[in-house]
Computed example of a mutant assay.
Amino acid sequence: MTTGDETAVRPATADIGRSYEDMAGLTETIGGPDLHYGYWDGPRDPAAVPAATRRLTDLVVGRLRAAPGDLVLDAGCGNGLAAVRIAETTGARVVAVDVNPAALERGLRHACEHGVEGLVEFRRADALALPYGHGTFDAVLAFEITPHFELRPLLGELTRVLRTGGRLVLESPCLLEPVGDPEAAARVRAYLDMFAAGHMHTAREHLESFHDAGLRLLEYLDLSEHTAPFFPRMLRRLERRRAELVTRYGSAAVERERRTIAGWARVPGSGSVLLAGAAPDAKRPPDARE
């Protein structure tokens, strides 16, 4: 965790899977099955959370520039809706990997419901040890997964399986600046613990790790202003359905979710970024621009 604590350890993959099962039902009931941030044009944008999460998915997927015949990796695919959306909107073939078998089963159901089961393969795998050879994929997606990893090993492995010139697109929560205040650091830690995650990296660390992986940076977007409405809207949705949620999940789980979301939203410099990069062409200098 980039809050001055250098002792954070990545949880075991089994712990990550269990954590998502523990909180996925509650979070999905509040905000829908995407389990990631949404995108709003501003604080007055009336879009509901599920519509806004679809917007963010489309924004991120569009950066892949995938096309029919391409092979795309969705690393840490969760419930698989981004992988399904890639197949739906681009016609590309998608390999979606995750460590959580239950999430992979849900992903397959989503693919069947959207009629793209022939284009999307779901497979259990760790993003740090992918069972694919060098240069296998035309594009790679890392959608809000970096808190579970050290950045350099993750981006090194994702770049390894990316063909020359292929695109890697990453969107993630982050810290726009390091957190030094102990109270704010505790709120960050609570947010990470809810997902059995180990690190909240800074925006600069994401940029540096792209460079260290040999990726040519094509685009960098600070999405923080557009994703910030996610938190107050999730909290309002939780309060509207509190009685139902307490009946289904228990008062302790509901209160933990409320407290953790509210705490992360109050962390100075909490935000989100999108980066797109390309595996360098050996025939071009590393700093060449498209």
Results as ranks from 00 to 15, higher is better:
Arg55Ala: 07
Glu88Phe: 03
Ala103Asp: 08
Phe122Arg: 02
Gly80Glu: 05
Leu56Ser: 04
Gly107Ile: 03
Leu59Met: 10
Val120Thr: 09
Gly62His: 11
Arg109Ile: 00
Val116Trp: 06
Gly80Asp: 03
Val116Gln: 04
Gly107Tyr: 08
Leu59Gln: 07
Leu119Ser: 13
Thr89Asp: 08
Cys112Asp: 14
Glu113Pro: 01
Ala52Ile: 07
Glu105Arg: 15
Leu59Tyr: 11
Leu56Glu: 04
Pro50Trp: 00
Glu117Thr: 04
Val61Met: 13
Glu88Gln: 11
Ala51Asp: 10
Ala103Lys: 08
Glu88Cys: 08
Glu105Gln: 13
Glu105Gly: 14
Arg54Phe: 02
Ala102Gln: 05
Cys77His: 04
Ala52His: 05
Asp74Ala: 10
Ala75Tyr: 01
Gly118Arg: 15
Ala87Glu: 01
Val84Thr: 13
Glu88Ala: 10
Ala66Asp: 11
Glu121Cys: 08
Val95Lys: 01
Glu113Leu: 08
Val116Gly: 04
Val49Trp: 00
Val72Asn: 06
Ala96Ile: 11
Val49Ser: 01
Ala87Trp: 05
Ala103Thr: 01
Asn100Ile: 07
Ala96Gln: 06
Asp98Leu: 12
Ala51Gln: 05
Asp98Tyr: 07
Ala48Glu: 13
Gly69Ile: 12
Val120Phe: 14
Leu119Lys: 04
Leu73Ala: 11
Leu59His: 10
Ala52Asp: 09
Glu113Ser: 10
Val99Cys: 03
Thr53Asn: 06
Gly107Trp: 06
Gly115Leu: 12
Gly80Thr: 01
Thr57Lys: 08
Gly91Met: 13
Leu104Thr: 01
Thr90Leu: 06
Gly62Ser: 15
Ala47Glu: 02
